[in-house]
């Protein structure tokens, strides 16, 4: 594991010329290619060494930005918007539907580590509020039935992997 991580980190950092200015894209790429969809303490240590910066700086950045995570997450991140427009448009129903379908509460990851259900702030999809973002794709105008189909389609995609 450690060797693999070392290899991945080196490959990604090399692609950015080992320049710490590129810490954000480096972290985003390593996270995306890492098991658990997060930056582990071990990964942070290796990145710090490769870029010749402190571990605390890496940790600061990872915990500051909401697209980066210092804790393991599912392969599929389901983010329900709870900003102004989506709250007016009653996102609570949407939350229940996803909680029912995934069998977890907001903030939790499914036991098979496939899905993490969280809240997000505005994702710029207020015209289809209440909106949900699943990995990079955004959905609105959902019904109970559509949520079931959506989760099933992501489950099927994950099964193929």
């Amino acid at each position: 594991m450690s060797k693999e991580l070392e290899l991945l980190t080196d490959q990604v950092c090399a692609g950015y010329g080992y320049d710490p200015v590129n810490l954000l894209p480096i972290l985003q790429e390593i996270q995306q290619r890492s098991e658990g969809n997060y930056i582990s303490e071990e990964a942070a240590r290796i990145i710090a060494r490769k870029l010749n910066i402190t571990e605390s700086r890496v940790y600061d950045v990872v915990t500051y930005f909401s697209a980066l995570s210092a804790v393991p997450r599912g392969d599929v991140i389901v983010q329900i918007c709870n900003s102004t427009t989506c709250s007016i448009c009653d996102n609570r129903e949407l939350v229940t539907w996803f909680e029912d379908e995934l069998g977890v509460k907001v903030g939790e990851t499914t036991p098979d580590n496939k899905f993490t259900l969280i809240y997000t702030h505005c994702i710029g999809a207020c015209d289809i509020a209440p909106a949900v973002r699943i990995n990079h794709d955004v959905y609105g105008g959902l019904t109970r039935e559509k949520v079931r189909e959506l989760v099933a389609s992501y489950r099927a995609k994950e099964a193929v992997k």
């Binding site: 900003s83 702030h121 505005c122 999809a125 207020c126 015209d127």
Partner: peptide, 11 residues
């Protein structure tokens, strides 16, 4: 970096 909630015109 259109982050103000309720804004999606730059999108």
């Amino acid at each position: 970096d259109e982050g103000e909630p309720g804004t999606f015109k730059d999108r």
